[in-house]
Amino acid sequence: MNIIKFELLKLRNKSRGWLGPILVFILIMVAFPLTVEISNKDLDQSFFAVLWIAVLLVMMLATEDIFLEDFNDGSLEQFAISDISFPYIISVKIFIYWLLIGVPISIIGSLFCLGFTNSGNLAINIFPILLITSYIFINVFSFGNALSLTKGSVLGTLVTLPLLLPLLIVLGKAVISINLNLNYLGFVALLLGVLSIIIFLIPLIISYIIRAHLE
């Protein structure tokens, strides 16, 4: 099976899988200013906290059935015995999910940033951070989903959630740096470093976990 064609065709026919998380993200970002009665300045301050939490929750939602359906219908069995490397198949699956959900959310998140902060510079700077962060989130939550593949997705994602708390701290510091016009590239480099490790390690671990589930 051509894995890229497989995933794209699957997600094209199952728009709930990728459109749902994007709509939830938009809903959170639109609902946020409606629920608080504070000045524009305060809104600006709390925007980023809401942004990161929204990305986190939406990525958790997006990966809910990343493996479950393929596990139930036997597609994962076929992938596991195919000639193509299983970790490669997993990484492509995660990449396609990120492409269809993470990238649009990064673009929409930047647009909301522009709307809330009235700062084009901030919106441009936040875009690569959103791209990297969403990819890290989607990888980690995929790991969580693989862990609890036969026991419901919530359990696994809850277990992996604490792994992302240090990342949220880094994101907060990065936003402060951008706001104070300090050099924030160090934080981007740190995020890229984390991503470069995760991008290879997580699919490898997931492949072992799924093989254990298939036994």
Partner: peptide, 23 residues
């Protein structure tokens, strides 16, 4: 490569026959 057909068919219920054959 080994050709294996187990209890699970590895087919997608929400796709047409043609799309499944394409997959």
């Amino acid at each position: 490569q080994i050709c294996f057909l187990g209890h699970k068919n590895a087919l997608k219920q929400y796709l047409t026959v043609e799309e499944n054959l394409s997959l």
